[in-house]
Amino acid sequence: MFKDITIGQYYQTESLLHSLDPRVKIVGTLAYIISLFVVDSFAGYLVCALFLIVMIRLSNVPVGYIVRGMRAILILLLITMAFNLFLTPGETLVKFGFLKITKQGLAFAVKMAIRLSLLVIGSSLMTLTTTPNQLTDAIESLLNPLKRLRVPVHEIAMMMSIALRFIPILMEETDKIMKAQIARGADFESKNLIKKIQSLVPLLVPLFISAFRRANDLAMAMEARCYRGGAGRTKMKPLVYQGRDQGAYFILLAYFCICVALRLLPLPFLV
C-alpha cells in the first residue's frame, strides 16, 4: 500500500533527464515552481503544462506511474478547491443556503487546482529522475557559497542524504511490521476513528524502535570509518557540467522568459 506513493521516490531508467547534472534539475525545478506563480492566466498554465508534458516524455517515466503518485495529494487538492470555491467574494453564480459559489471563486479554484497539480508533478519529476545521493551532492554544491557565512553546508547535506536514504527503508519496514501484525489479526482498515488510532500503536512502537536501532548502527558504522565531517573531504564523483547541461540551462531561461512575458504583456485574448 505504501508502494503506491511515488512522490519523493527515484525511478530507475535511462533518459536524457536522468543523465542531466542534478544541479540543473534542482535549479530547473525551482524555476518551474516560480513560473507557476508568475503566470496567472489559463494560457500561461497551458504553456506550463506543455513544458511539463515534454519533460515527462524526456524522462522515460511512465505517465501512469506519475499519475498514481498524485493520489496521495488528492484530498489536499479537493480541500483547497472547496475553500477557494466557497470563500472567494465576488459575483454570485449559485447559492446553497449560506454557501455561495462566485464566478471569481470558480476561476480561482480551478487555477489553484492546476497550479498545485503541476507543482507536485513537477517536483516529483525531479526526485523521480535524480537519486537522493545526486540530490544532496547538488545541494551541497549549490549552497557552497554559504560556507563563508559559517553555514554548516556539508552537515546539512549529510543529514538530508541520510534522511532521504531512510525513507524507503522505513517504508519497507512499515510494510513488514504491518503485515506481521495483520498476520496476528490486526485490522488497519477499520472505519472507526478511535479503533483506527488504537491500531496504530502496534505499528508505531516497533517502527520507532527500529528507526532508533538503525540510527544507532549507522552512527557506529560512520564512527568506525573515522567520519569527521566535511573538512578536507573529496568526492568520488565530483559534479562537472557537460554540454547538454548548458543547453538545458538555456532552454530553462527561454521558458522562464516566456512565462514572464505572458504575465507582463497585456494580450487581449488571455483570460
Binding site: K176, A180, A183, R184, G185, V201, P202, V205, P206
Partner: peptide, 16 residues
C-alpha cells in the same frame, strides 16, 4: 489468518 499462523523473519521486531 488465525488458522494459518505466519511467523515472519525476525519476528521479535513486531513486539510492542
Amino acid at each position: 489468518r488465525a488458522n494459518v499462523g505466519l511467523v515472519f523473519q525476525y519476528p521479535e521486531h513486531q513486539l510492542f
